[in-house]
């Protein structure tokens, strides 16, 4: 019984272990620096606690009269005053460089991210000029300095890719800058870390670190409209139900910017800001009743759509790639 309780308790610690979203499983230089500081501090703290316990042990067990008042005061001066001052100074100097943002050069990639209840608007500055608008997914080239320009649309959100860098708040009316460099290609995850409403915990995004050549090829390819953006029953239903009043699809007349850009929905790894698999079924369900997946969601429900119609739209959206 007791053993079971202990194992269940220990399991809670394991829940933090995953290589997609963990500050300990890093894929970027900034997060690596934070991890090093964390490990040094934890090890150092354990060491200091051990020393304190040792001194306490000795003080309690020393025979009467063996320790003098003067010795005690000297201990207080050194271990309580001078020692900690030196230690804290060293830690400060050791940790401060991690707070200095990486230097950016002209030509470095800039990605604008806006937090919005409960999704992410992403804009990549193209090398040739102009901005590619996307949503709920952040792609970065590895080995390159990337500047994230972060802001909020409605309330304060916070942008955190644990494996890449520290957190940065997204504040309406203000642009915060976060500079990072990914070092290891792969698929990762980021989250919102400032309570922003009912579906705050359901506001995440995919992060894909790619080789630079692949990244820039992807960026160029994304700018062209998806094939089949205009054809089919799904496209008609999309237009007829006013989805284009909020969503944009490149290559069509829909260019609204209230909801996530759906131009390349078929390429997405998740649905609903990092929370659901983007299958046709799940997408159709989301269209008819988004609040079932995300309480307080800013998209209206479409119960008037038949299941078959919602599915037709989902098939159309999945084809956008």
């Amino acid at each position: 019984m007791r053993q079971a309780a202990v194992s269940v308790g220990l399991l809670a610690f394991l829940s933090g272990c995953n290589r997609h979203q963990s500050a300990l499983a890093t894929f970027g230089a900034e997060a690596e620096g934070i991890r090093t500081i964390t490990i040094a501090l934890v090890v150092g703290a354990v060491f200091i606690i051990a020393i304190m316990v040792g001194i306490y042990w000795r003080a309690v067990r020393a025979p009467e009269g063996q320790l003098t008042h003067k010795q005690g005061m000297r201990l207080v001066l050194w271990l309580g005053g001078i020692g900690p001052t030196i230690l804290l100074t060293v830690i400060l100097i050791f940790a401060l460089p991690a707070m200095r943002p990486r230097v950016t050069a002209p030509g470095d990639l800039t990605i604008h991210v806006e937090g919005e209840q409960f999704w992410w608007r992403v804009g990549y500055e193209r090398p040739g000029g102009g901005v590619l608008v996307a949503a709920n997914e952040v792609r970065v080239p590895v080995g390159r300095t990337v500047a994230f320009e972060l802001t909020g649309r409605d309330v304060i959100h916070s942008f955190w890719i644990p494996g890449l860098a520290g957190k940065m708040d997204m504040i309406p009316g203000r642009t915060n800058s976060l500079v990072a460099r990914a070092d290891k290609p792969g698929r990762y995850r980021g989250v919102c870390t400032e309570f922003c409403g009912l579906s705050h915990a359901l506001m995440a995004f995919d992060v894909i670190a790619m080789e630079p050549a692949a990244f820039y090829a992807w960026l160029a390819d994304q700018s062209r409209p998806a094939a089949g953006a205009r054809q089919g029953q799904g496209a008609q239903l999309f237009a007829a139900n006013g989805c284009g009043g909020c969503h944009a699809i490149r290559g069509t007349e829909h260019d609204a910017r209230i909801g996530p850009d759906l131009s390349r929905y078929g390429d997405r790894l998740t649905l609903g800001a990092g929370i659901l698999p983007p299958t046709i079924e799940r997408t159709a369900d989301f269209i008819r009743a988004p609040q079932d997946a995300k309480p307080g969601v800013r998209m209206p429900a479409y119960p008037q759509l038949s299941h078959q119609e919602a599915r037709a739209i989902a098939v159309y959206l999945k084809g956008l790639k």
């Binding site: 100097i93 401060l96 460089p97 943002p101």
Partner: peptide
Amino acid sequence: SGLSFVAVIFTALPVVFIGDCR
């Protein structure tokens, strides 16, 4: 004054070390 001396140094170090307006 001992405390304040250390505190002033701890305030000054970040300014010198971070030295970045972003």
